[in-house]
């Protein structure tokens, strides 16, 4: 039998607030937000940080949900198209959110270029101007948010976006993403 107690202790020691792997549906997103909002209410005194963490979670979940939506239903049982991983934990008062999901190889370059561009901005003002230019641009897709999600995460956290693409097979790569929301942000 799996040593459940050890697993539990390990999660406890790592201050994991929530960990999920599976299909991301909108109902799940709502539940996760409800749970975390309740948790934040208990453990975070700073209303500013509370809002930032919640906001960033909304965007991270939206990114995951959006991915699932665009990649369509799984063709076969082994398809790893529509499952994702989400983990939220605290480290010395900082909040950390990590997500992981499969992404079609053909979409890797575009996403990588977008995140690299966000990370290239040296100041908050530049990042803000980039956000405004996309928001004000009529072209941007109403559905996907036009990549505003990652810009918003960078703005609200004040941190660089940490990511990695790991090629899995001919069709897919695994996209790992991590953001830190510093305590007292």
């Amino acid at each position: 039998m799996v040593d459940v107690y050890r697993l539990y202790e390990r999660m406890q020691d790592n201050n994991i607030m929530l960990s999920f792997k599976g299909e991301v549906s909108f109902d799940l997103v709502k539940s996760v937000l409800d749970i975390l909002e309740g948790r934040l209410e208990k453990i975070e005194d700073n209303p500013k940080v509370k809002k930032k963490v919640f906001n960033i979670l909304v965007e991270c979940l939206q990114n995951l949900g959006h991915h699932v939506e665009t990649s369509g239903p799984a063709v076969d049982r082994d398809s790893h198209d529509n499952t994702a991983l989400l983990m939220i934990w605290t480290e010395q008062g900082d909040y950390r959110v990590a997500t992981g999901n499969y992404i079609k190889n053909e979409n890797v370059e575009k996403l990588k270029a977008h995140i690299d561009k966000i990370n290239s901005f040296e100041s908050r003002q530049e990042l803000r101007a980039f956000y405004q230019s996309i928001l004000g641009n009529q072209q941007f897709s109403e559905k996907g948010g036009g990549g505003l999600g990652f810009i918003d995460i960078a703005r609200k956290s004040g941190q660089k976006l940490d990511y990695n693409f790991k090629p899995v097979d001919e069709q897919y790569s695994f996209f790992s993403f991590q953001i830190t929301i510093p305590k007292g942000a």
Partner: peptide, 13 residues
């Protein structure tokens, strides 16, 4: 607003 997501941001505009 208390919160809005980036999907809403364009609609609000």
């Amino acid at each position: 607003f208390d919160y809005f997501n980036t999907s809403s941001s364009k609609c609000i505009l």
